[in-house]
Design a protein around this nucleic acid. Structure first.
Lengths: 210, 210
DNA sequence: CGGTACGTAACAAACGTTTGGTATGTAAAA
DNA sequence: TTTTACATACCAAACGTTTGTTACGTACCG
C-alpha cells in the first residue's frame, strides 16, 4: 500500500479521530488510551504520536471534529424558521438513532474531563453559548409571528437546551424507556407549553400551594 | 491519637468516602486515584485498602453514601404536596449553592464511568426511576387539585427531571450565567408552562410552521 | 498473646512519551 | 538516467512514571 499523498495528512488525522470516537463510545474517557485507539485502527501508538504531539491534542481535535460534524449536520435540512426551526435544532440534539446515541454518549462522557480542566470547561461553556445563540433567532421569529407569547428569547433558548440535554442523559441510561417516539412526544409537549398564553407573572413561583 | 473504637469502622469508611468526594469535586473521576484520596486524608494508601478491598468498592460506596445523603436532605423540609412539593424536590437537584454544585458536579462526572460500566449504568437508571417515582405523586396531587391540566404524571416527572438536570449541566459550566435566582426563575417558568390549559393534541408537533 | 489499625515498601501492569530504525516517496545533482 | 539527499510514514521497542494491589512490619489495646 502506498503511503498517503502529502496533503492527506489532515485526512489521516480525521481517521485517527474517528478511532478515538469508537473507543470513547465503547469505553468512555476513563477507557481512552493511546493503545486502545491504536488497536482500534490496527496501528502502533507511534503512528498516533506521529500525527498528534500529545494525548491531549488528540482528544481536543477529536472533540472539535465531532462538534464540527454535529454543526454541519444540523445546518442541513433546517426545515423552517420560527418554532418549527427550533424544534428541528432540538431534535438534532436527541439520541433518536443508535448513531446519535453514540455522539450524545461521547458528549456526556466528556463532561467529566471538561469539568476538571479549565480550558475544556471554557470550551464547553462556549459550546452552550453557541447552541443558545443558534436557537435564539428561532424563538425571536416565533414571537414575532405570535407562535409564542412575549418572553426573553435567550431564556427560552436556555430552557429548551436544558430540557433537551436532560432528556439526552435519561435516554442514554434507559434507551428502552425513551424510544424515538417518546423523546419526540416529550419535546413536542415541552414546546407546546411555550406556546400557551401566560398570566402576568406573580412572585414566588407557580401557585406554590403554601 | 488513639485508634478509633471497634464499631467506628463504618464511621471511618464514611470519612474515607468524604475524602473521595473531595478529590472527585476537584479533579473528577479521571483524577481519582488511591494516592490522591490518601493525600487528601493525610494517610497512606494501605489505610484505604484496610477499609475497602478495591478501588471499585471505594467508589461505589462513596456514590451510595452520596445518594443517601441527597435523599435524606430532600426528605427534610418538604413544604407541601401538589405542584409546590414538586418544585421543592426539583430545587434540591439544582446547584444553587457551592456545596450543591459540588454534589452535582460529582454526579455529572460519574456519568462517564457509569456509561462505560453495565452495573453502574443500571444503578444510574434505577436512580432516575426512583427520582421520577418521587416526583410523580406530587404531579398526581397537583392534577387532582386542578393545578395542572390532565396529563400522564410519569411523563411530567420525566420532563421535569430532564429540565432540571439539563439546567444543572449548563449551570455547572457557566455558574456566572446561572446564579441561584436565574435557576429558580427558569424552574418556575417551566412549572408555569405545565399549569396552563392545553388545546387538544394535534398530530406532528406544536404548529410546526411547515 | 491475639487482633485491629495502620505505615512502609514493593509488586506487576498499564500508562504517555521517546527513540531508533526501515521502508517509501520526491527532488535536486551528477 | 542514475545517484544522492532528504522528508514523510510508520513500527517496534523501550523509557520513566503512575496506577491498583499485595506483603510485611510495627504499635497499640484488650
Amino acid at each position: 500500500m502506498p503511503p498517503p499523498a502529502p496533503g492527506d495528512r489532515e485526512a489521516r488525522r480525521k481517521d485517527v479521530s474517528e478511532a478515538v470516537w469508537q473507543v470513547l463510545a465503547a469505553r468512555g474517557f476513563g477507557g481512552l488510551t493511546l493503545r486502545a485507539v491504536a488497536a482500534a485502527m490496527g496501528v502502533s501508538t507511534g503512528m498516533l504520536t506521529h500525527y498528534f504531539p500529545s494525548k491531549r491534542a488528540l482528544v481536543t481535535h477529536a472533540l472539535d471534529l465531532l462538534e464540527e460534524n454535529t454543526a454541519q449536520r444540523s445546518r442541513r435540512a433546517r426545515p423552517s424558521a420560527g418554532l418549527g426551526g427550533a424544534r428541528a435544532v432540538l431534535l438534532d440534539l436527541l439520541p433518536l438513532t443508535p448513531a446519535d446515541a453514540g455522539r450524545s454518549r461521547i458528549w456526556v462522557s466528556s463532561w467529566d474531563l471538561s469539568l476538571a480542566d479549565d480550558a475544556l470547561s471554557a470550551q464547553q461553556a462556549d459550546r452552550y453559548t453557541r447552541l443558545r445563540a443558534t436557537l435564539r433567532p428561532f424563538f425571536e421569529t416565533a414571537r414575532a409571528r405570535g407562535e409564542i407569547p412575549a418572553g426573553d428569547p435567550e431564556h427560552l433558548a436556555a430552557a429548551a437546551v436544558a430540557f433537551a440535554h436532560g432528556l439526552v442523559v435519561q435516554a442514554l441510561f434507559a434507551p428502552g424507556r425513551f424510544p424515538e417516539e417518546v423523546q419526540i412526544a416529550m419535546l413536542d409537549d415541552f414546546l407546546t407549553g411555550l406556546t400557551l398564553p401566560r398570566p402576568p407573572a406573580g412572585g414566588g413561583g407557580p401557585s406554590p400551594g403554601r
